[in-house]
C-alpha cells in the first residue's frame, strides 16, 4: 500500500504557478524590456488586480470634454458616489451590491474576442487592444434610464480609433458587444434577472462617433470592478444600460444585434435608447432626472431637473438620427 505523507516543507500543487501565468509574465517582461519602459510600467501590466484598481493611470491626455466645458450645473459626481451606486446585475440587483460583490471579478488577465466582418479578428489581450493609443480624459454626463444621473470623468480610448485599427469591413453595419459570462466571477448570474451574457450593440456610425469611448478608468485611475473593469463602453447620449461593462467580445455584424434589455422587455427598451425627455418609459417619465450629489433643497434632498435632448449632446449626435421617428425608434 502506498501512503503519501505530506510534510510541511512540501510544495503544494496550488503553489506552483500555472504555466499560462508564467508565460504571461514572460510576455509582459519581454514587452516591457522591448520598449525599455520598465520604470514607467503601465498599471495594467501589474498582474495583481486588487492592487491595480484605484491605481493612477499614467499619461492621461486632457481633451475638450472637461468639467468646465459642461457648464456650471454639471459638477463632477464624487468618486465615492460613482463607485458605490451602480447597476451591474451580474453582481446583484441592489445599487450597493456591485461595490460589495464585484471583488470576485478578475479583470487581469483579460481577453477580448474580436470577430465578424473585420480584417484583424482574433483573441486580443486587454493590453494589446489598448496599446498604442493615447488614454484620454472625457468628462461626460451619464443618464440612467431610471431617471438619475451623474457627471463622470472617464479615461479611455475613442472606439473609432480601435475600430480603424481592427479594420472593420464594408459589410460591418453594427458592432455587438458581450459582457463576461462566468457564474464564478459574476455570482448574480445565478439568477435569471436577464438572459446572460449581457449584450449590447451600436450602429456603425454610432460606434464611430467621436463621443463613443472605450473606458478603462475614471477619475484618472484604473476603473473599479463595479464600474465595468477592465474595459467598458461609454455612450453619453444614450441611457446608461447601453454602456456595456466588462466586455469580452466585440463582433462586427451585418444585422442589428440583439440587446439584453430589449430581449427582456421590448416595449420598454429599444435598440437605440437615446436619452429623450419627450419619449417616456412606459412605467415612468423621462422628462426629468435626479443629479446625484447635486444641489439640495430646503428638505436636504436634490430635486429633479429637466433632462436634456440626447443628454445634452444634440450637437454631436442629432445628425445621425436625421429623419428618423424617435418615438418609434426608442
Amino acid at each position: 500500500m502506498l501512503i503519501r505523507h505530506s510534510r510541511a516543507s512540501d510544495v503544494l500543487s496550488s503553489e506552483i504557478t500555472p504555466h499560462s501565468v508564467l508565460l504571461n509574465r514572460r510576455e509582459v517582461l519581454r514587452a516591457a524590456a522591448a520598449t525599455g519602459a520598465i520604470a514607467g510600467l503601465s498599471p495594467f501590466m501589474l498582474s495583481n488586480t486588487a492592487v491595480a484598481a484605484s491605481q493612477k493611470l499614467p499619461n492621461v491626455i486632457k481633451t475638450k470634454w472637461t468639467e468646465h466645458a459642461l457648464g456650471k450645473d454639471d459638477k463632477l459626481t464624487p468618486y465615492d458616489d460613482v463607485t458605490s451606486y451602480n447597476n451591474f446585475y451580474e453582481f446583484g440587483t441592489g445599487k450597493g451590491d456591485p461595490a460589495r460583490n464585484a471583488h470576485t471579478l478578475k479583470p487581469k488577465p483579460w481577453t477580448v474576442v474580436v470577430d465578424g466582418h473585420v480584417e484583424k479578428p482574433g483573441h486580443y489581450d486587454f493590453d494589446d487592444l489598448i496599446r498604442g493609443h493615447d488614454l484620454e480624459e472625457r468628462v461626460y454626463r451619464f443618464r440612467c434610464v431610471e431617471a438619475w444621473s451623474m457627471v463622470i470623468p472617464w479615461v479611455g480610448v475613442p472606439l473609432v480609433k480601435i475600430i480603424k485599427r481592427l479594420g472593420a469591413t464594408s459589410n460591418a453595419k453594427y458592432v455587438a458587444f458581450e459582457t463576461l459570462a462566468d457564474i464564478e466571477q459574476m455570482p448574480g448570474q445565478r439568477f435569471a434577472t436577464l438572459k446572460w451574457p449581457y449584450r449590447e450593440g451600436l450602429r456603425m456610425d454610432e460606434a464611430m462617433n467621436p463621443l463613443t469611448l472605450m473606458a478603462v478608468g475614471l477619475y484618472g485611475k484604473v476603473i473599479p470592478n463595479q464600474n465595468g473593469a477592465p474595459i467598458r463602453l461609454v455612450t453619453p447620449w444614450k441611457y446608461g444600460f447601453k454602456s456595456i461593462k466588462s466586455i469580452v467580445r466585440i463582433s462586427f455584424t451585418e444585422e442589428m444585434p440583439p440587446t439584453s434589455w430589449n430581449m427582456s422587455a421590448p416595449r420598454e427598451y429599444g435598440f437605440y435608447s437615446n436619452v429623450n425627455p419627450l419619449v417616456h418609459h412606459p412605467r415612468w417619465s423621462q422628462a426629468k432626472e435626479r443629479r446625484l450629489g447635486g444641489p439640495t433643497n430646503i428638505f436636504g434632498f436634490t430635486p429633479k431637473r429637466p433632462t436634456l435632448m440626447f443628454n445634452g449632446y444634440e450637437e454631436e449626435v442629432a445628425n445621425m438620427y436625421h429623419g428618423m421617428d424617435l418615438k418609434r425608434n426608442y
Binding site: 412605467r283 415612468w284 417619465s285 422628462a287 433643497n297 429633479k304
Partner: peptide, 21 residues
Amino acid sequence: VVVDQYFDWTAIWNDIVKRVY
C-alpha cells in the same frame, strides 16, 4: 410627494394617470 417629486403636482397627476404601477 415631498422628496421625490417636490410638490410637482402636474408630474404627480401624470404619474397617477399614465403609470400603471
